[in-house]
Design a protein around this nucleic acid. Structure first.
Lengths: 123, 123
DNA sequence: TTATTATTTAAGCAAATTCTTAAATAAATA
DNA sequence: TATTTATTTAAGAATTTGCTTAAATAATAA
């Protein structure tokens, strides 16, 4: 760890930054966990679809996304473990839906996806 | 790919969803690329710090985050390749800053980080 | 009870991620 | 010119990711 000592480095700025990061450590860790879940294209689509359709089962998602059931199931489990979706059982079908917890943040991502899409349709 | 044919599956819903996903394909791919960059804790911190400080060099970031220079440099390159940060050279120092492109979206993430942090300080 | 259906779980594997150390650039200084 | 400084690049290793196939659960239907 050879810390380079820049001639023009501002020690006060560095110290302030260190404190900021330290005080926000938990928020960073929580937030990056959620973002890494949403940062996979398949999972992002699932989240988007759950927002649109309220709830969907692994079978539907497999059909819609053209992927194997186990692949979908494993993505769902990951997001359930991460606390961003929840499951409801009805007979032998399991319906997944978005958990309220990070919904506000996820919605802002969906909004941005729609904006991006609108932009690209123009071009 | 043994598509399961649920008895109560709604073929119209499935078809509509397929079309939605197909029409938004590019936006999903762009968006998930950005989110996967932000979904790493180190990179999320770097992005946050760049927003706060306007610009920082690899050396500063290495100091602030307590990580080796090459590790930081590789994260920066990844984000530069991904088009979310930019570089400015001044002598032998290279200053990195956020690119305007996805700034609006990133800012909403930072806002959420601050909200999360405020919540956690209460508890 | 036996078979079918919806889903999960487990094992295995290829590819991607993220660090480390060492070497290469490239600008500034002695 | 030779040395120091800031940064990048490359190679390698440990870990994680995301799929596949096959087997295990569990609810429904015959």
């Amino acid at each position: 760890m050879n810390t380079c000592i820049r001639l023009y480095a501002d020690p006060v700025q560095i110290k302030t930054c260190k404190e900021k990061v330290e005080n926000t450590e938990n928020a960073f860790s929580q937030m990056s966990a959620v973002l890494s879940l949403a940062g996979n294209e398949v999972r992002l689509k699932i989240l988007y679809l759950l927002e649109e359709e309220k709830e969907l089962c692994p079978c539907d998602l497999s059909d819609i996304l053209g992927m194997s059931i186990p692949a979908i199931s494993q993505h769902l489990r990951k997001m359930k473990d991460g606390g961003i979706i929840q499951a409801r059982k009805e007979g032998q079908t399991i319906f997944y839906s978005l958990k309220p917890e990070h919904l506000k943040m996820l919605r802002s991502l969906f909004k941005y996806i729609n904006e991006l899409n609108a932009k690209m349709e123009l071009a």
